[in-house]
């Protein structure tokens, strides 16, 4: 019986290898386009690429009345016309996905000289960590795992990735808001996001006639949930950025962490100085943790004016052309560390 099983097992293994070859030459490419387009973009980008720009919606969102719809990365490219800057973009992406994208370059003969990675302060918050979009982001990584292509395709169908339900993610998010203690250097009455949010929800803003200003309250609550956290080494994004930083160091690639602008003035007027304190404290933490010989943290946190944010009624990092141009210029300035000779003053 054992001999018979062994023969069958070997036969099955050979069939699998054959099927894997057939799959790789038939459907694999179209599946990559369908499920992991960014991985394919990285794999197909030419090896003479100088700089990769990894971003999310902030890079490619524009206002309807913008005179140019150029992305931050393309605007940045204006300062370095001789450099080949390749832009890889996906909505709601975060450090975990960027790390995965970097790994797609493993085994290349020639690596880029620099990588610019978008660092969105909100991506460190509980709402983004436990976002319902996370499952589809996790799904996008399955096709490029270190298994045979056919196996990866099957794992995708088996939903073999972090595929928690929306309800479970919501539960995890609420738990984090309720239990994670906020640490301030200044006296403050609220200890958690939940407490702070409840405090704001109970009449935090009044209209001139003394009624609750529900619109403002709602937005203020949203700001609290988006920015009220203390960064530390246990944050999953920090763990991922640590990995990214280490990988770049090993490969000898200069890493630029493009910390995006947030609407600080609005956060101040809506919620107060305590929230701004946390935002700045987290910015300082990131700079302190990552700024090194090999890594540059480009601090844009307070660079863009409040009115240059496209979404005034929500927390996003979507800027109009003025905002994008300012950030692109700042990134271009930072890149001078390596590419000073190639720099031209574009605007």
């Amino acid at each position: 019986m054992i001999k018979s099983i062994a023969i069958k097992f070997l036969l099955l293994l050979s069939i699998f290898c054959g099927l894997n070859i057939i799959y790789t030459h038939t459907f694999y490419q179209s599946d990559l386009v369908k499920y992991a387009k960014e991985d394919l973009d990285i794999k197909q980008s030419q090896e003479n690429t100088d700089v990769y720009y990894f971003g999310e919606s902030s890079n490619i969102t524009y206002a309807p009345d913008d005179s140019t719809q150029a992305s931050i990365s393309s605007l940045c490219n204006l300062f370095y016309p001789q450099l080949k800057i390749v832009n890889i973009n996906k909505y709601a992406t975060h450090a975990g996905i960027y790390r995965h994208w970097l790994k797609q370059m493993d085994g290349r003969k020639k690596l880029p000289k620099a990588i610019v990675i978008t660092m969105n302060l909100r991506s460190f918050d509980a709402a983004w960590i436990h976002s319902k979009l996370e499952s589809s982001l996790q799904q996008s990584m399955v096709m490029s795992q270190a298994y045979p292509h056919l196996m990866n395709r099957f794992l995708l169908a088996l939903q073999a990735f972090d595929n928690k339900t929306v309800e479970q993610r919501e539960k995890d998010m609420q738990k984090q808001w309720k239990t994670e203690q906020l640490i301030f250097d200044i006296p403050f009455k609220y200890k958690t996001v939940r407490e702070w949010d409840d405090g704001m929800a109970n009449g935090g803003h009044l209209t001139p006639d003394g009624k609750w200003d529900m619109k403002k309250i709602e937005l203020a609550c949203h700001y609290i949930k988006a920015y009220a956290f203390n960064l530390n080494e246990n944050n999953p994004r920090i763990i991922d950025f640590d990995d990214i930083s280490l990988w770049c160091k090993k490969q000898g690639i200069h890493l630029y962490l493009n910390l995006l602008s947030e609407n600080i003035a609005y956060a101040d007027s809506l919620v107060g100085k305590e929230l701004v304190f946390l935002m700045r404290q987290n910015r300082d933490y990131l700079k302190q943790r990552y700024q090194s010989e090999n890594t540059t943290v480009i601090d844009n946190l307070e660079l863009v004016n409040g009115h240059d944010f496209i979404d005034q009624n929500w927390t996003t990092e979507h800027y109009n052309e003025r905002g994008r141009m300012r950030i692109a210029k700042n990134v271009a300035e930072a890149l001078k560390i390596q590419f000073n000779k190639a720099y031209i003053k574009a605007y």
């Binding site: 799959y23 395709r153 099957f154 088996l158």
Partner: peptide, 9 residues
């Protein structure tokens, strides 16, 4: 082959 390569995702 159909199962591994064509299963719904």
């Amino acid at each position: 082959f159909l199962l591994l390569a064509m299963a719904g995702t």
